[in-house]
Simulated scan of single mutants.
Amino acid sequence: MKIAIIVREETMQRCTCKGCLNAFFQKKDAFSRYEDDLTLVTFTHDGGDIDRKIEMMIKNGVDAVHLSSCMRGKSANYEPLAKQLSEYFDVVGYTHGPEEGKEPKTLIINKADKMF
Rank of each mutant, 00 (worst) to 15 (best):
P98N: 06
E100W: 02
L67W: 09
A64I: 15
E55S: 05
E99G: 04
F24V: 13
E9V: 05
P80N: 01
T44R: 11
D49S: 03
E100A: 11
E103T: 09
I58W: 03
F24L: 09
E55G: 03
G19S: 14
T39L: 12
T39H: 12
V41T: 15
S86A: 13
A4N: 05
L67T: 12
K59C: 05
D90S: 02
D37E: 13
H66W: 12
Q13P: 07
S75V: 06
G73R: 13
K28I: 13
K102Y: 09
N110H: 12
K83H: 09
K28L: 11
I109T: 06
K74D: 15
A76F: 11
L40F: 02
G93T: 01
S69F: 12
G93K: 00
C15E: 10
Y34H: 08
F43C: 04
G48R: 12
P104S: 07
P80F: 01
E79Q: 08
A112T: 07
A64R: 14
D90M: 03
I5T: 03
G101A: 03
E79G: 04
K83I: 01
I108M: 06
G61S: 02
K2A: 00
S68L: 09
I54T: 05
D49W: 08
I50L: 15
Q26H: 14
G101Q: 02
P80I: 02
F116W: 11
G47M: 08
A30R: 01
F116H: 07
F116T: 02
I54D: 00
R14A: 14
G47T: 00
R52N: 12
M1K: 07
S75Y: 05
N77G: 07
V91C: 01
E35S: 13
R8L: 15
R8T: 10
M56H: 03
I6S: 06
Y88L: 00
F89N: 01
E55R: 05
I109P: 01
E79C: 00
K83F: 08
T39G: 12
H96P: 05
N22W: 14
N77R: 10
D29V: 03
I108C: 00
G61H: 05
G47K: 11
S69R: 13
R8C: 15
C70G: 09
P98I: 03
S32T: 08
I58L: 07
F24S: 05
K74T: 15
K74S: 14
K111V: 03
P80K: 02
M12Q: 14
F31R: 02
Q26K: 14
V65M: 08
G73Y: 13
A23I: 09
